[in-house]
Design a protein around this nucleic acid. Structure first.
Lengths: 342, 342
DNA sequence: CTGAAAGCGCTAACAT
DNA sequence: ATGTTAGCGCTTTCAG
């Protein structure tokens, strides 16, 4: 049993040629380097026989490329992000890239740590759902000419490639839909983060309400309460106080989940007459009673756009083209929860 | 602006000492190597000032360690796996490891490809939800003394560390629960894969049914149909044919989802009188009508056990201790869907 | 107490 | 048409 790890060198020795030649052949430069086709064939066959696979680490160290991408999201266990992760993973794999996923919890220091750590590993590119205050870190990446695409939200003052949905319009449409169905007091429940996606959704809601001569009714849940029972309590209390109990528009999926859980457990009498619309579709929404109307973000389209952009950046890393802002249209999926009240 | 990338060497030059000394200090070997505390302090301060961070790739190439773990699951967008991923990610990060997630789709060649690719990147350890036929690849990893922990399912003929739940008992208990609640014709719906977790669940069901003098009623869905409409049709047809329409026990979460979708859309009249129990809990089960009884796999406990094992393996990679088989108890969460029929 | 030097495995100018 | 050589940035043995 040959214990010696196979390497370029060991192959070269075995075949009595130089490592360079082997390297050229393996990297498809045989033609270009005028290496005889017999030798090429011989090497290829030998390599196939012993199933040699080059050490990627050494290669990366030398070339500066790792063929690894980072996909940093708020929370990989959130179904929106995990579904999207799957789309991206598949595209990346097909193109020879591996993907590292990580969750930043919308926390700046966590984001910065993760970005630093992966930069040191010579990651080739970043797809990032940025936490509120990491403009500086993003800029640093851009300055170093590292491919970055921002997802879901962005910074006005950072000139970066981004893929987002038309949050404001989608929110406007969803609100208008409720209004058209005769709801008058639409509570908009959102978080208190000052990030673009949430502000745009709020804006769309406000505009639709104003245009129809209605009063806005907005509940801000502190971000840190949103995943806790504190969040549910705030929601339930607010709804109990609202007159008339009419409709709710949730600005993001985890608020919806928290609220539905709480309604079911503690105030089932509230949920029945309420109109409900939420951002982010979920496979369970068509099974719930009533089925839930949702603003669906087109995962596959977004994943494709994201990777198209990224692959382009990866190709021509040098050229400083103007960054692109890609806006994907969300779709309102109308189900029972938003039908006109009796 | 100093364009020169900072490296150990550049620091050494700047400070007029050797790279060796810097390396020792940075790796906490100052004491051990009897380096003067003044020098140590000076270096540490300088390094902090210029925010030097060592190139991990070079370090990995030299040491053979990457501080990266792979977590390979069937499908990262499946909520069971993405929730677990989150638990593992957090523990790993706290211990200085990064995690690469990937989905093998329960496909052997995909699994083998992924494992190979990551081996070449000197990944430190693998947590794997194995596809049916990769014993050989797992054995190869073990032979090379690479830390591997199998999750959810395993191979009888591979001597590997594993973390699983008590599938058979959990399944037996869930079936018994239905029987106790007076269900007589319990359809067990599973996939046709021959993997341990599914076989054990089937076994538990059979045993409970047999002990109570009932007839087993088993529906095998081909794995490749399970995520498609073909799967739903098979289920609906089978239930329509079953007399009496009584109860269903789903052996895995995606079957449940598919079936619930289909029932809601095409045969709402069926679902009402049926008793339902499923493997794998979901946050939406307590919101559905009726709420769904589920065998809950304790994610946090599993994640902890998994990482305990992995970290132990990582520490003493040499010693060939007997592999451990850790069995975590699942919990039956009783909700409305399994209450006694009227 | 500190440094020189070898080497992890690969790539790519620069020979020849 | 193929080989020599010099690194990529780090760790670690061995010498002093």
């Amino acid at each position: 049993m040959n214990k010696k790890r196979i390497s370029l060198k060991s192959i070269a020795e075995e075949l009595n040629i130089s490592a360079t030649t082997v390297s050229f052949i393996l990297n498809g430069k045989a033609k270009e380097k005028h290496i005889s086709s017999k030798l090429t064939k011989k090497v290829l066959e030998y390599v196939a026989e012993i199933k040699y696979q080059p050490n990627q680490l050494a290669r990366s160290l030398r070339t500066g490329k790792s063929n690894i991408l980072v996909f940093m999201v708020e929370d990989i266990s959130n179904s929106f992000f995990s579904k999207l992760a799957r789309v991206i993973e598949d595209i990346a794999n097909a193109k020879g890239y591996k993907v590292i996923f990580c969750s930043n919890e919308n926390d700046d220091s966590r984001s910065v740590d993760l970005i630093n750590i992966f930069s040191l590993r010579q990651v080739d590119g970043f797809i990032i759902v940025p936490s509120p205050g990491i403009q500086h870190t993003i800029k640093k990446l851009l300055d170093e000419n590292i491919p970055v695409v921002l997802l879901d939200r962005y910074f006005e003052d950072v000139d970066c490639n981004i893929v987002v949905i038309n949050n404001k319009e989608a929110s406007y449409d969803a609100t208008s839909h409720l209004i058209k169905n005769n709801y008058k007091n639409i509570v908009f429940i959102t978080t208190d983060t000052q990030q673009t996606q949430m502000l745009d959704r709020l804006e769309g809601y406000k505009q639709a309400v104003a245009e129809n001569g209605l009063e806005p009714n907005i509940l801000f849940i502190p971000y840190n309460d949103a995943h806790t029972d504190m969040g549910s309590s705030l929601i339930i209390n607010h709804i109990k106080m609202s007159q008339p109990k009419d409709a709710i528009f949730f600005a993001t999926n985890y608020l919806t989940l928290k609220a539905l859980e709480a309604f079911k457990a503690e105030a089932p009498e509230l949920t029945h007459p309420l109109g409900l619309v939420t951002f982010d579709d979920n496979e369970f929404f068509s099974i719930l009673t009533p089925t839930i109307t949702a603003v669906s973000q087109p995962l596959v389209a977004m994943g494709n756009q994201l990777m198209d952009l990224m692959l382009e950046l990866l190709k021509k890393k040098d050229s400083k083209d103007a960054p692109q802002k890609i806006i994907v249209d969300a779709q309102l999926i109308i189900r029972d929860s938003s039908s006109a009240p009796q």
